[in-house]
Amino acid sequence: MTDRRRISGPSVGTAPPIFSSTIVGAEKAQLKRPVRTRKPSELRKIFLKTGVTPSASGSAYLELEFPSPSTPSSQKKTFLSPSSTLKLTCTIHGPKPLPRSSPYNPSLLLSTTIKFSPFATRYRRGYIRDTIERDLSAHLETALRGVIIGDRWPKCGVDVVVTVLEGEEDRWCGDELGGGSDGVGGVGGWGSMGVLAGAVTVASAALVDAGIDCVDLVTGGVAAVVGRSRSLGGKAQQGDDEDESFVVLDPSPPEHAEIGAACVVAYLAERDEITELWSKGDAGVPAEELVDQAVAAAKATRNVLVEAILETAKLKFPDAVLSTGKSGGDIDMTG
């Protein structure tokens, strides 16, 4: 549906201009595929902070470490950033009374929204929610629904709004120039899985900040099978270096030429439960391992979440004795 009230931009996504010099030089240093420098089982550093929006009853901000660029910005000839990162804010409004027209509901009515900023990714988005945003919102709702104790808040509704300030790209910009199956308009969407995992974590921190009853802390984790496409599936254990595919935690899609499959989980570590599982692609034999690795990523993220909410606790209950964990002075840490 089009928005008739205001002058809207193009209905299809637009990309920032790519100059021919960069296409010619795609092989050169200025447009090189970013390389994953961390170990396969290592996450990017996570910054998480709660209480960033004073007007909301609960809020949080999550940012992933941006890999240091291989070329200094002064020598760069293009505005295109080869790698991508994640910046999310979450605000929680409520619990508030339901509108008069809504029917009686004995538990908390949860509504979740994930909205990309127009500038969040190279693919620009309009103000109206598109299908990916609706899909991610539904995934986030299932992830949070299993965590909230809804019957503590009868006749109330709560809005969870996640704004994506910077989203993970689906592929490296160099791949986009070449087109092909994973090029412009091709199959992909790997970036949205990282966004969902981050959204689950940031929403969990904001829920704690808002003081909404939860059975546990939920965190999101993502893992992917990367490698060469022909090795995916049954041939993974052949052992040839060229053909090998392996599982990485917290993948940054631009860093990998081929992503065979990816999996997001929303995981409750204390209860050992999964509230949301989303898998995409053909993982083949290592599908079970993929889920296990995604859970491992979620477990690692939990450490950051616990540190961040202990920081919150210091602000909210300054005179309470913090005995649950060591007093971490800095919440910027590895997962």
């Binding site: 704690v208 009853d213 059975v215 204390e270 004795v321 649950t324």
Partner: peptide
């Protein structure tokens, strides 16, 4: 029980205490 708790943290056995506001029972 610990003096300070985060969601999901086990506080005490239900034979010693009764659950009040802000807590729930798991097994």
């Amino acid at each position: 029980p610990p003096s300070f708790a985060i969601p999901g943290q086990t506080l005490a056995a239900s034979s010693k205490y009764s659950p009040g506001p802000g807590t729930h029972l798991i097994s």
